[in-house]
Structures are given as C-alpha cells and as structure tokens.
Simulated scan of single mutants.
Amino acid sequence: MGFGSYDETEQDNQEYDTDFEDDDGVSAEENAHDGDVEFEFTASNDELLDRLEDIKENT
C-alpha cells in the first residue's frame, strides 16, 4: 500500500486503548487558588482617555 492510499482492511484492524486509569490526567481542583486581587490606579480617567486616543492615533 502506497503513501496516501486507503485500505478498508485497516479500518477493521484498529485497536483502541480505552482502559483509562483514575490517576491519569490533571485534576482541575488540584491547582485551585482562593484569594483576592486588588488594583490601584494612579492615573485619572482623563489621563487614561488621553492615552487611549494616543494609541488609536498610532495604529
């Protein structure tokens, strides 16, 4: 059988490993973190809007 050819017998000869162990993979809760995030903005709204306008002009 050449590269790219399709052989229907290959369809019947496939074996699948569906025996999954409970220890496989990563638990989503394993790395869960509880906490707070706080941001402190030092610029005023006007300064931020001016900066946004500068960015828009340069793109």
Rank of each mutant, 00 (worst) to 15 (best):
G25M: 06
D19K: 04
D19I: 05
E10V: 11
G25D: 08
S27T: 03
T18C: 09
E30P: 00
D7I: 10
A28Y: 03
N31E: 13
E30C: 06
E29I: 11
T18V: 08
S27I: 00
G25Q: 02
H33M: 15
Q14D: 03
A32S: 10
E29A: 10
E15W: 04
D34G: 13
D17C: 01
D17Q: 02
N13K: 09
D12M: 06
A28I: 03
S5F: 14
G25P: 01
S5K: 15
D34S: 15
E29V: 03
D12I: 09
F3Q: 15
S5W: 15
D24T: 12
D17W: 00
A28E: 05
E30T: 10
N31D: 10
Y16I: 12
Q14P: 00
F20C: 05
E8S: 14
T9R: 06
A32I: 13
E21T: 05
E8Y: 05
D34M: 12
D22W: 05
D34W: 12
D19P: 00
V26Q: 03
S5N: 15
Q11V: 14
A32T: 09
Q11K: 09
G4W: 12
D17L: 09
F3M: 13
S27W: 00
G25E: 07
E8I: 14
D17G: 01
N13T: 06
D7A: 09
T9F: 07
N13Q: 08
E21K: 12
S5Q: 10
T18L: 13
F3T: 12
H33T: 15
Y16W: 08
F20R: 07
E10K: 07
F20V: 11
E29C: 04
D24N: 03
E29T: 03
E21G: 01
A32R: 12
V26P: 00
T18S: 09
D7H: 12
Q11G: 03
S5T: 13
G4R: 13
Q14L: 10
N13S: 12
F20I: 06
Y6K: 11
D24W: 10
D23H: 02
F3D: 14
V26S: 00
E21V: 01
E10L: 13
N31R: 05
S27M: 09
G4Y: 14
E10R: 09
Q14V: 10
F20M: 12
D23L: 05
N13M: 10
S5M: 15
D23C: 02
D23G: 01
E30M: 08
D12N: 12
S5A: 15
N13L: 11
D12Q: 08
E30K: 06
D7P: 00
T18N: 04
